[in-house]
């Protein structure tokens, strides 16, 4: 009986240590994925998010088109498309200014792939949607406001 109890304690203790380490951030599944830009996805302001992807202060560009609804009735599924007409576009990021995690998705566009991506994002509230594009080594940005009417009552 005593031995069994000891084993159970050991097993429990082991789990506890792992849990503590995980809570302290020492063991995280993301560690296996070094490429995932955690600081950019965790950024709490547009400036911080832009800095984390190395964009600094991107210049406005009319050559980036954002396809998104003017009014999104359902903030859980907002279709967003980005087309960049800038030559040598190599990177596209979609940011939603008023979301808790601003950076929604980023895409690396190898040569031969068109700078034309579409996805769907969540939006907590009416916000500007930014498309940050890296083309020929420089960053550019465009934005579009999307109004979110979660209750479906307009606004």
């Amino acid at each position: 009986m005593n031995n069994q109890r000891r084993d159970a304690l050991k097993a429990g203790g082991g789990l506890g240590v792992f849990g503590l380490l995980a809570a302290a951030g020492l063991i995280k599944p993301e560690m296996a994925l070094a490429a995932w830009n955690k600081s950019a996805f965790d950024a709490k302001s547009m400036d911080a998010a832009l800095a984390a992807i190395g964009a600094g202060k991107p210049a406005d560009s009319a050559d980036i088109q954002i396809t998104a609804p003017d009014i999104a009735e359902n903030g859980a599924v907002v279709p967003v498309g980005v087309v960049s007409n800038l030559p040598k576009t190599e990177y596209v990021a979609i940011m939603i200014e008023k979301n808790p995690s601003m950076l929604a998705a980023s895409f690396e566009i190898p040569e031969g792939t068109m700078a034309d991506v579409q996805t769907r994002v969540k939006m907590g509230q009416t916000s500007d949607v930014f498309a940050v594009v890296k083309a020929d080594g420089k960053f550019y940005v465009a934005k579009k406001e999307v109004k979110v009417t979660l209750g479906g009552c307009g606004g």
Binding site: A35, W36, N37, F41, A76, V77, V78, P79, G81, I96, N99, S101, M102, L103, A104, A105, S106, F107, E108, I109, P110, G112, T113, M114, D116, V117, Q118, T119, R120, V121, K122, M123
Partner: peptide, 18 residues
């Protein structure tokens, strides 16, 4: 032909077109 990083702001059951 494409590599992407997603954050939690991408919708449930993500859709992607390129």
């Amino acid at each position: 032909v494409l590599s992407a990083q997603f954050g939690p702001s991408v919708s449930t059951n993500p859709y992607l077109a390129f």
